[in-house]
Amino acid sequence: MKKSLKDFSQKKRMYGRMFILPWVIGFIIFFLIPVVQSLIFVFSKVSIGDTNFDTEFVGLANIRYIFFESAKYVDNLYDALISFSYSIPLVVALSLIVGVLLNQKFRGRIVFRSIFFLPVIIATGVVMTYIQGDATAEAMRSGSAEMSTNGIDVTAILQGMHLSKEITNFLVDFVNRIFDLFWDCGVQIVLFISGLQSIPEQLYEVCRVEGANKWEEFWYVTFPMLSGTTILVIVFTAIEVFTDASNTVMRQAYTAMQQQIYDQSAAMLWVYFALVGAILGLVILFLQKAVFSKWAT
């Protein structure tokens, strides 16, 4: 009896490996090998022949090039990181709010939910480029901000307040982006709703018995119970923003790729990725240690 139990658990271990074996093979062929090759590109001079590519080790030359000789990389990197730093909190907050609202019982929520998923279908990279390009063109044609999404000439107001030009630009960009950002929220809202649904109803009952109000309910039950979903949403949003084709660094790297400068474009992307990854890692660590764990007790 004992032997057969041991056999069974061994067998199950083998079954488990069997189930994920295809993935491991795929990971090596379609992920690990390209990743390593693209890392090699960063430290090499790449020349593409008809049949193959040759790499020649050049150390940090590519990285030195993009930082000190490339015309715009540092500026682009700065722009991308700035837009990154406000896009993510805004998208996460907006989709959390919408998720909570849509999760409540009220008349017409099915209709609203259907509408709020539409951005996932419509806001594909390509369609979005056409839409946004058009909105800008329209605003310029009519000579006013009439067709732009916010409709108020924020620039004039801010200039009237005698703020420095950088702050003005930042704020204008910020307001304009809020509406654009909503287009990036589709999947996140879905993730939040399904996270909200998995919170056991008993916790809310306890709250009601204890006499907590809705606000306390949100901060003491909903928010901590969503910690896992929130981290997933942050990571997902980060990737979306990070790989967005309209992103300045992405655009520069893509242009370089089209000119077949693979080594420098790889260096641009990897430096960018390493920076974003490091920031993201710190943010998640901070959230786990300082914010979410507070409620865990």
Partner: peptide, 24 residues
Amino acid sequence: FVFFLVLLTIMIPVQMLVVPTYLN
């Protein structure tokens, strides 16, 4: 560890892999 690798595949954008993948 393997599951961590699964999550890693979401995090690395295809743009970084597309050139070596094409050559492969």
